[in-house]
Design a protein around this nucleic acid. Sequence first.
DNA 1: ATGGTCGGGCTCCGA
Length: 256
Amino acid sequence: MKIATWNVNSVRARIGHLTRWLKEFAPDIVMLQELKCQTAEFPLLEIQAAGYQAEVVGQKTYNGVAILSKHKIENPIHALPGDHGDDHARYVEATVAGLRVASIYLPNGNPVGTDKFKFKLSFFDRLDRHARALLKSEQPAILAGDWNVCPTDQDVWDPVAMAKDALCQPESRAAFRKLVFQGWTDAIRTQHPDTRDYTYWDYFQNRFERDHGLRIDHLLLSPRVADRLVACGVDRTPRGWEKASDHTPAWVEIKD
DNA sequence: ATGGTCGGGCTCCGA
């Protein structure tokens, strides 16, 4: 079973790329981020025609997350618990094929030293508590999405240029590590300890062509899913298509 | 040296 995550940077602008990639890569489950549309505007007919169900949490202009699946989607939740005042569409979680899967769009947090950065850390704190409860439930689970964190300098093409960025702050990295230390496996880094495996390249300055990227899209596996890990990677193909998202899909394959 | 490019939806914001 193949499970992927992809920040599409507007699902309506990218629907052609998305349906092409669903057909070519044939994932069983896909976590999407940055839909940039309201739930009612989500291109559901095209997704269904491609053979997928969808659980969508949208909002106007910003954010937006979804779970696409070839299998039945059950018991969804549409927000990360812990803050009733959080009206950002950044979290959707559901049960699919016996797995608890979450599509997460963590706040970017720039610039550092503002309420945006505080919101990022508080979102991480809520995620930490919720992830702990998921582990305790002993359901096989996958937390996937755009984490807006480069876990180490290995995940950054130019660590000096990025040193003041919210994606590389010690607090952001510590928050990510705290989840890993709970017992979640960062699939790609664990299976590929020595490669860069970027998932994002800025639109500026031909960064993709020069491979000046970042690894910020991650799939974290609960222990029972990590036991089933067969392969994982980053599919750079869609990033090379015309009018691409600035992110490309990351994926895992697990035993059924 | 603080630019550059996208998408959404307006004349700027967020990334």
